[in-house]
Design a protein around this nucleic acid. Structure first.
Lengths: 354, 354
DNA sequence: TCTGCGACTGACAACGTTGTCAGGTAACAT
DNA sequence: ATGTTACCTGACAACGTTGTCAGTCGCAGA
């Protein structure tokens, strides 16, 4: 019947079949198989049928890595995604949105966690470059991304998310941190607060700085002395945030409202308020929304970011760049949303001024 | 000085350099560059130095995809990870644990979301196979994974997580769903409850079935008629869970304790209890832990799973299989932990029998 | 001096695919 | 009958790397 050895006649074959095997079985040339598999024109219906049958019989799977070798302009159909941590819900949302936007183009995503570690950043980028990803979407930590210029100038599409790059010209998609924090300040002031506290993340993280600036500037614009704002920074987990909040709340002149610049810090502040029984007396607004915020007592008012919009836009930008968009680098700013749930609407207590 | 055109002399080069470029610049053969780059022995120190300098000067990056082409036994140093959704915190924890375990071996992870959609499952698996991943770690939805047998018999390492496979012999790492649910039942009964409710997920999800069985069996073992247990299933989101819980709680003979088989269902139940003002009267235990469970009022008692242990073990198994472990397929069961926080320790109210 | 050995080195084919290009055939117009 | 299409088709090189293998060289031992 056929000239094939029966090695590839059944599912029990040891090795993966190649185009050569399919071509032999179908009695055509390799290139014809390639055309059929890639849905290229120029193959008669009869031949196509025969090839399709052969691929099915052998359970043939095109090796995309081999194809991406030919013509180095060829793409690997994969991108690298560098996130603070894949286990962080905010990152997860971004990841998911990107996946959805990229899947329609058949692009797969390599995801990895940076853990705010510059060394790890370089290692991971290196690992992705070695796999010849078509583009890189990343949240950076290193002070400068200038070390990536060689790659970028080699036409490696780059999109920064959440934080803007320094020392390199590239697209970025970020949350409107200043305005978001300013909204929080305005909201608290509008509810009568004048003794405010700002609980911030590590000062070397760009977004933390922006939120701080946005908050303090808005306080100043409202005519309140910013020197009266209690600022505690470098809070990187619940524990340190709890301690800072606890300390502030039990001090001589405690704040009547707290703004926390990040989820873990918000959690720490919530715990401190609850521990002191002040959760219904001191106002709290957190930056970044979180699950069950509305189920808290009181519900936690937040400045919500839109990770799904960030992810979607980042995916669109990287695709555009991969497709050859050469327009100047641009930063896209995604607005925030103030969600009132109770904690941010608490008014200063009459007796708290003591 | 050198025979190289100055095309590759600086960072401004357009194309990525190849081993050939490095070899020319260093004045050695390609193979010698390969040896240096891969840290193989048999290169004199002097030569090595020259090659290293050349790679640095050209910012050379080894193309691992090209290498994996040679000798088809060669690995791509990447695996595919199929999760319910990368934005789901439980999945995120597993992903993270796997990443950490695989990174030390230089293996990158392609992650994708299944969304409980069998078609999507097949498409994604196909996409990963086309990229010649060294192994696949997945949470399945399809009733049977028999369709993967051809690939599996071609030595594609496979590890199932969270759910056991059907119709195929492969390793699996799962939570002890039966025992976990049984613990919940025993805990509630021990606190005096006899009118129990079980709120479950889609019945076609394997883990949901196991939790149901575990719960009901434990109830039976305690000598309580299982026919008295109110069972509501196919609850797949907060809204449906809320309605089911609300309905049960406002029925003729309401349960004094609820067991919810999954996070979203737990959230729905929590909302229903709060809406009816019963959160301090009706006991609740949820399967799977979640952030801020301890900050609820009351704190939510849960059967915690250990996603980080599942991920770590799955990574170890896939590595072992990649390294040639041919031992029989085995299912690894990860124990759960009952975490008491208040909601599960509420006793039946005296008047609730009314 | 010659032989043998060990250490080093590079030419070459091969991995599985696709771009290029030339050849071959049928149909149709001249 | 001949030329002109349009359409199919496959041989072949190339992509960037590594395994194989056949060298070359310096030096110790005979």
């Amino acid at each position: 019947m056929t000239t094939m050895s029966n090695r590839y006649q059944s599912d029990s074959g040891r090795k993966r079949p190649t185009m050569k095997n399919v071509a032999d079985l179908a009695g055509v040339g390799i290139k014809t198989v390639s055309r059929v598999v890639n849905d290229e024109p120029g193959v008669s219906e009869a031949t196509r049928q025969r090839v399709v049958r052969a691929t099915e019989q052998l359970q043939y799977q095109l090796d995309i890595t081999a194809g991406s070798l030919k013509r180095s302009g060829r793409k690997t159909q994969s991108i690298g995604l560098l996130l603070p941590s894949v286990s962080n819900p905010f990152s997860g949302e971004i990841h998911r949105a990107m996946e959805d936007a990229l899947a329609v183009r058949g692009i797969a995503v390599f995801a990895a966690s940076l853990d705010d570690d510059p060394d790890r950043e370089k290692k991971l980028i290196s690992a992705f470059l070695g796999r010849r990803v078509d583009g890189l979407v990343l949240t950076t930590i290193a002070k400068s991304q200038a070390y990536m210029i060689p790659e970028h100038s080699r036409d490696l599409p780059l999109v920064f998310i959440d934080r803007e790059p320094a020392g390199i010209e590239a697209d970025a998609v970020v949350t409107d941190n200043e305005l978001g924090a300013a909204k929080a300040a305005a909201h608290l002031i509008q509810h009568g607060h004048t003794r405010l506290a700002y609980l911030g993340d590590r000062t070397d993280i760009q977004t933390a700085g922006r939120r701080r600036t946005g908050f303090l500037d808005a306080v100043g614009r409202a005519g309140i002395s910013t020197s009266g704002v209690a600022v505690r920074e470098n809070l990187h987990d619940e524990e340190t945030a709890f301690r800072a909040a606890h300390e502030l709340l039990t001090s001589e002149n405690p704040p009547t409202a707290i703004f926390s610049s990040q989820n873990l810090v918000t959690f720490g502040a919530m715990r401190a308020l609850k521990a002191l029984g002040l959760h219904h007396e001191v106002a709290l607004i957190g930056f970044d929304d979180f699950t069950l915020a509305d189920m808290m007592d009181p519900g936690i008012t937040v400045i919500a970011q839109h990770p799904e919009r960030i992810g979607k836009l980042a995916a669109e930008r990287i695709l555009a760049r991969i497709d050859g968009d050469e327009s100047p680098a641009r930063t896209y700013v995604i607005p925030t949303e103030l969600i009132q749930r109770g904690s941010g609407e608490i008014r200063p207590q009459a007796d708290s001024g003591k």
